[in-house]
């Protein structure tokens, strides 16, 4: 199945308590050299057929309007998955 991958991250200026908690946990476990972790979201959108440019534009709009909240998050990537990248190929 054709797949589009959308990635959303908290804006750089937005505090990310989840990322901070992960960073602190890694330090407690003795992992050195990890300055910080920020946690975002990855959406894998399964399509019936290969997306047209119009469908990709629609998905970009969905990403900006619903999958991300532009007050606190940025859409950092909208792309058609490479062969072997989809969940059914993993």
């Amino acid at each position: 199945m054709p797949l589009v991958i959308i990635e959303v991250m908290p804006k750089p200026e937005i505090l990310d308590p989840q990322g901070k908690a992960i960073t602190a946990s890694l330090a407690r476990k003795g992992h050195e050299g990890i300055a910080g972790v920020r946690m975002g979201k990855r959406f894998e959108i399964e399509l019936d057929e290969q997306p047209t440019e119009a469908k990709l534009a629609e998905l970009r709009t969905i990403a900006e309007d619903m999958l991300a909240n532009s007050v606190i998050e940025d859409v950092v990537d909208v792309r058609v998955a490479e062969h072997g990248e989809s969940w059914d190929a993993r």
Binding site: I14, L15, P17, Q18, K20, N69
Partner: peptide, 16 residues
Amino acid sequence: TEARLLPGALTRNDSG
């Protein structure tokens, strides 16, 4: 806020 009837957003508490 999500419906844009009020400005801004509510996010995870700073204490976690």
